[in-house]
């Protein structure tokens, strides 16, 4: 038995990495989504537009650029899923949730910054996504993704 384990050591390492990746990755994802949903509720009242707002004279006290970003890493299981998907085609669910998490987290951080500055509204929000890390320049693999959200926070004059 010991011989068998030694002989297929790399296979065993591979499988345990996949299992480790699945367990820790899905736990991290669940936890992250819980926190995202909770913070989204808290910040729901702060309006964010992708349009440029128009403001009547005397209303605006100050406007500042606010940004928020997050780099979310892939796990071993997700990578395996993506490689398999490369064979069969179809929706790469593993990456869908990765990108979704990164973007929502970035928007939340931007909103949090706007709120801390006392902004009443964030206008003209833009989102950027980029592949980051060791595997970013390899064709078939994605290491991690960065999402950036930025916009103009507008602070009103006290009435």
């Amino acid at each position: 038995m010991a011989d068998l384990i030694l002989q297929s050591l790399d296979l065993i390492i591979f499988l345990s990495l996949v299992i480790l990746g699945y367990i820790s990755g899905s736990m991290a994802e669940k936890k992250h989504y819980r926190s995202i949903i909770q913070r989204e509720k808290e910040l729901l009242k702060l309006p964010v537009l992708t349009a440029e707002g128009s403001f009547r004279a005397g209303l605006v006290k100050e406007s500042v650029l606010v940004t928020g970003s997050a780099v979310i890493s892939i796990d071993y299981f997700k990578r395996l899923m993506a490689v398999l998907r490369n064979l069969f085609g179809g929706r790469v669910k593993a990456y869908e949730s990765l990108l979704d998490r990164a973007r929502r987290e970035a928007i939340l951080r931007m909103k949090a910054e706007a709120k801390s500055r006392g902004a009443a509204i964030v206008v003209n929000m833009r989102l950027e996504t980029a592949a980051i890390g060791k595997n970013a320049d390899r064709k078939r693999q994605l290491g991690s993704v960065e999402a950036v959200a930025y916009g103009t926070a507008v602070i009103y004059n006290p009435r």
């Binding site: 699945y22 899905s26 299981f77 395996l80 899923m81 398999l84 998907r85 064979l87 069969f88 669910k93 593993a94």
Partner: peptide, 8 residues
């Protein structure tokens, strides 16, 4: 994901 994985 596990269902997806088993299919593939």
């Amino acid at each position: 994901p596990l269902l997806d994985f088993s299919w593939m």
